[in-house]
Nucleic acid binder design. Structure first.
Length: 115
DNA sequence: TAGCTGACGAAAA
DNA sequence: TTTTTCGCCAGCT
């Protein structure tokens, strides 16, 4: 029943990030909004960080801040890893920022408590 | 146990 | 227009 909120916030973030399409990016705020806590944008990044440490395989590199800046690249194995992954998907990065950000931006739908 | 930090965002001054 | 402050929630020390 309804309820998948065993892990609460983090689990929701994982799910939203996991559904980001290939070659697309989204922002922390957008994810936060999708999970129901628009103001908790800080936690989104923190959740991704925790996910990496937890071994959860999610495209965290597709999540950038509101400006399209790769602020979270420093948390990856290497600072260039995030940019490299994005470029590998056809996204152009310039000065640690996503070029045509609004064009590749993907707005996550409201998370439906499935399961 | 209690307090600080942290991958952001938006509003106010 | 730019800079600063507050809010958010959970994990870590």
């Amino acid at each position: 029943m309804a309820s998948t909120r065993d892990s609460d916030f983090f689990d929701r973030v994982y799910r939203v990030v996991a559904m980001i399409p290939y070659g697309r990016v989204t922002s922390y705020g957008a994810v936060a909004r999708a999970v129901g806590s628009e103001q908790a944008s800080r936690m989104v990044g923190w959740a991704l960080n925790a996910s990496i440490k937890s071994g959860v395989d999610i495209p965290a590199h597709r999540v950038v801040n509101r400006k399209g800046m790769l602020t979270g690249k420093r948390h990856f194995s290497t600072p260039v890893m995030m940019q490299k992954l994005l470029e590998n998907e056809g996204i152009t990065i310039d000065n640690d920022s996503v070029v045509d950000f609004e064009r590749v931006f993907w707005m996550p739908p409201p998370l439906i408590e499935d399961r």
